[in-house]
Design a protein around this nucleic acid. Structure first.
Lengths: 109, 109
DNA sequence: CAGAATCCTTCCGGATACTG
DNA sequence: CAGTATCCGGAAGGATTCTG
C-alpha cells in the first residue's frame, strides 16, 4: 500500500511504483476500453491466477486508479472501471502500444 | 532472452516484456538524458545491486534497446547509451513522468 | 573500473479448496 | 459470480568474494 511518505522523488519512479508490474499494465489496457467484470478480466488475461488478479485489482483500487462497483444482485456482479486518475494514464498505454507495434515491425521482418 | 516466437500478440504486452520492470524503466530514464558509465548508473539507482544492474543492462542490450561500448583504457571505461530503438521509447517515459507529476500533486495536498 | 561467480534468502505468484 | 484462505515452489534479487 502506498503512502505519501513512500512516494519517490522522481515522477517516473512514482509511476513505476503504481503500474510497474506486468499484470497491472494489461489490466489497465483492458479497462481503458470499457468496464470489465471479474471473471471477464480473468479469461482475457491469459495465465493470470485468481489470486494475482484479486491482489492487483485491490492494489490499483487503493492507489485510486480504478473503481470497484458491486451490484447487489444474485449472482453478484462486480464491475471494475477506471477512475479519472486511471483514465489519465491513457497516454502511457498508448505510447507503449505505439512502441510495441514499431518493435514488432522491426524484428519480425 | 526474447525471441520472435515469444513476442505476445498485443503490442502493449510486447512493450511490457521489454521494460516491464522497475529498474529497466529507471535505467531508461537515465539514458534518455545522456550515456552513462556502469558505476555512475549504480550510484544513481538507489538500492540496486551490481548483479541486478548487470543483468538488466545485458538484457536490454540483447533486446536492442541499449548499446555497450568498451573503451580500451586503463582503468577500463564502459559506456551505455540508447540505441535508436531505445530512443524511440522516450514518449513512454515522458508520459510516465507527466502522470507521476499529476499524481503527486493530487495526493500530496 | 566493470564486472564474473557463488551462495543464500525472500517473496511473488500458482494451485487448490472453500464460501456468501 | 466473485471472491477468501492456505500452502508451496521457483525465480528474482541481495550479499559477498574475486579478477582482468
Amino acid at each position: 500500500m502506498k503512502t505519501k511518505a513512500e512516494l519517490p522523488d522522481c515522477p517516473v519512479a512514482t509511476t513505476v511504483s503504481l503500474i510497474g508490474s506486468k499484470w497491472k499494465l494489461l489490466i489497465l489496457r483492458n479497462l481503458l476500453v470499457r468496464p470489465w467484470r471479474f471473471n471477464e478480466l480473468r479469461k482475457s488475461l491469459d495465465g493470470i491466477s485468481q489470486k494475482v488478479l484479486t491482489d492487483s485489482l485491490r492494489s490499483m483500487e487503493e492507489d485510486g486508479i480504478i473503481t470497484r462497483t458491486v451490484y447487489p444482485e444474485v449472482p453478484p456482479r462486480v464491475e471494475y472501471a477506471l477512475s479519472d486518475l486511471g483514465e489519465s494514464m491513457r497516454p502511457i498505454i498508448k505510447s507503449m502500444e505505439t512502441f510495441g507495434i514499431d518493435y514488432k515491425e522491426q524484428f519480425e521482418k
